[in-house]
Amino acid sequence: MPYNCPVCNNDDYNEIDGHFFCTECQTQSQELIVQEVSGDTEVNFRCEVKVAEAGTHTLTKKPKVDLGRPWTIYEAYQIIILAQVDGLIEQGASQDLKDVVFTIWANYLSNLGVAFCSKEKLVPDVVTRTRIGRRRELHRGTFSNPLNRRKRPFSERSSKGCHETSHLMGETFYDDDNPVDEINDNIVFLDDSNGANKTQAAKRFAARRSRVAKSPEWMDMNKTIAICYIGLMFTNRNILPIDVVRFVYESKVPFLSVTHLLPPDMVLSARDKALFESSRFDTKTLSAEVSRLLSYMKLEVMPTPDLDVIIPCFVHQLCLP
């Protein structure tokens, strides 16, 4: 069986002092060697044996993994909103929808204070006020380490005692990684054997997070569609929430799966995937999100659907007399 040179792929070798060297590039083979075997018979002799594999291991460099660059959740949601607008235009929405939705999006970010304002914030007020945030919000990474890695678990630091509580109260933590909450709930929570306290704490946290998620300041996937629908209320007032929901579940508007829309340099890490998931989406959810956003952005006077157009459409679709 020929052994090709790993450098030039040549299979011809020269033997020098028991080692084999490539005749083309002079690279020493790590697979072929010469061993001497002596046999005690009436006539002493030596025979040379080529050993195919000497059991030696060569050090290989691991391929460098592209970690991408730092990015924010609002940057990712903006890419998704643009794709959703394109999908709605393909379904008959006006071309003006792009400009209208961008204006609404800029208005929303300006109200949050994270962009399009004189003094931008790293995180919106809802995060600092409720002390519930997402890792990508709280730690967007650096160019040398763009991954928003999880902090060291608090259980590893618990031996330091409760005297850290006053110091930790002034810090901002991840959504389920807040040691202050764990201390305040019960110090037994860290080493609880039956898990009862842990379950109760998890339920309390889930209730808190559910309340925060309903805030118009908490950007998520449901609000991407809601912002698009507010734009439709200006450009295509006869497209109803039920139409948008149908577009979503027919995969005509990106929503159920959107991570493929992100560019390659926006690498997902930690729990980034959860940013692009939605546990529930229907007309009731969409209408509620739209109502909260309109109130938050102070858009009180909005165009209403034209009933003279909507009613005949329903009559025709439902085959009513």
Rank of each mutant, 00 (worst) to 15 (best):
C8T: 04
C8W: 06
N9F: 12
D11F: 09
Y13S: 09
N14G: 03
Q26N: 15
Q28G: 03
E31F: 13
I33K: 09
V37K: 11
V43C: 04
F45C: 03
V51L: 14
T56M: 07
H57I: 03
K62V: 12
R69G: 00
I73F: 01
Y74Q: 08
E75L: 05
E75A: 10
A76E: 07
Q84S: 14
Q84A: 13
D86R: 11
L88I: 07
I89Q: 11
Q91M: 15
S94K: 04
Q95T: 13
L97Q: 02
D99G: 13
V101L: 09
F102P: 00
F102D: 12
T103I: 09
T103H: 12
A106F: 07
Y108F: 11
L109G: 06
G113D: 11
A115D: 15
F116G: 02
C117A: 12
V123S: 09
T128V: 13
T128R: 15
L138W: 04
T142K: 09
R150N: 13
R150L: 14
K151Y: 12
P153L: 06
E156S: 07
R157A: 12
C162Y: 02
H163G: 00
E164V: 09
T165C: 13
G170A: 13
N178W: 04
P179G: 07
V180D: 03
N184E: 15
V188C: 12
L190Y: 11
Q200R: 10
K203F: 03
F205I: 10
A213M: 05
K214R: 09
S215T: 06
D220T: 04
N222C: 10
I227N: 08
L232A: 07
M233V: 07
F234E: 08
V244T: 08
V244H: 04
V245E: 01
F247H: 09
Y249Q: 04
P254H: 05
V258I: 03
L262N: 00
A270S: 15
D272P: 03
K273H: 11
S278A: 08
S279M: 01
R280Q: 02
F281A: 01
D282V: 07
L286E: 02
V290T: 10
V290A: 08
R292M: 06
L293P: 01
L294W: 08
S295V: 11
M297F: 04
M302A: 07
P305T: 10
D308C: 00
V309G: 00
I311Q: 05
L318Q: 04
